[in-house]
Computed example of a mutant assay.
Amino acid sequence: MCLALSGGSTGFHTANPATAAAATGSELTRLAALYHSSLDWDDPAGPSPWPREQQEAFRREADTALRTLRRELGDGWAVEDRR
């Protein structure tokens, strides 16, 4: 899971502390940790150990968090989804 924010810097950022809610930052941190469990660390390029239902549930949660982050940061920031 990688979010690139333009308007200041790039890379993984949980939120602009001046404009985004702390809860959104916590949710993005939670999702990033959860994402790591989706990888088979013995074969990271291989298939995920997650069943399809869990993969789909994660995508829905990530989409919701992305929409929330974009709304909270406002038009001055571009949040790029790099899935």
Rank of each mutant, 00 (worst) to 15 (best):
M1S: 12
C2P: 09
C2M: 15
A4Q: 07
L5V: 14
S6L: 10
S6V: 13
G8N: 07
S9D: 05
S9T: 09
T10R: 06
T10Y: 04
T10D: 00
T10Q: 02
G11P: 04
G11F: 10
F12M: 10
F12A: 07
H13C: 04
T14H: 14
T14S: 13
A15E: 02
P17K: 14
A18V: 13
T19D: 08
T19S: 11
T19L: 11
T19V: 12
A20M: 08
A20T: 11
A21V: 13
A21R: 15
A22K: 07
A22D: 15
A23H: 07
T24D: 01
S26M: 04
S26E: 12
E27D: 06
L28S: 01
T29G: 09
T29V: 06
T29N: 08
R30K: 10
L31I: 07
L31F: 06
L31C: 10
A32G: 13
A32F: 14
Y35E: 09
Y35Q: 12
H36Q: 14
H36D: 10
S37V: 13
S38A: 15
D40W: 05
D42V: 04
D42C: 01
D43C: 11
D43K: 15
P44S: 06
P44N: 09
A45S: 15
A45F: 10
S48K: 00
S48A: 05
S48E: 05
S48D: 08
P49V: 04
W50T: 01
W50K: 03
W50F: 01
W50V: 02
P51F: 02
R52M: 08
R52E: 07
E53K: 12
E53Y: 04
E53F: 05
Q54K: 13
Q55K: 13
Q55Y: 04
Q55V: 13
E56S: 08
A57G: 07
F58N: 06
F58W: 11
F58L: 03
F58K: 07
R59T: 06
R59Y: 03
R59N: 05
R60Q: 11
E61L: 10
A62K: 00
A62S: 04
A62V: 04
D63F: 04
D63T: 08
T64R: 11
A65S: 08
L66D: 04
L66Q: 01
R67V: 03
R67H: 06
R67I: 03
L69Y: 00
L69E: 05
R70K: 14
R70V: 08
R71H: 13
R71T: 13
E72I: 07
D75L: 08
W77K: 04
A78G: 06
A78S: 11
A78E: 13
R82D: 09
R82P: 01
R83H: 09
R83V: 10
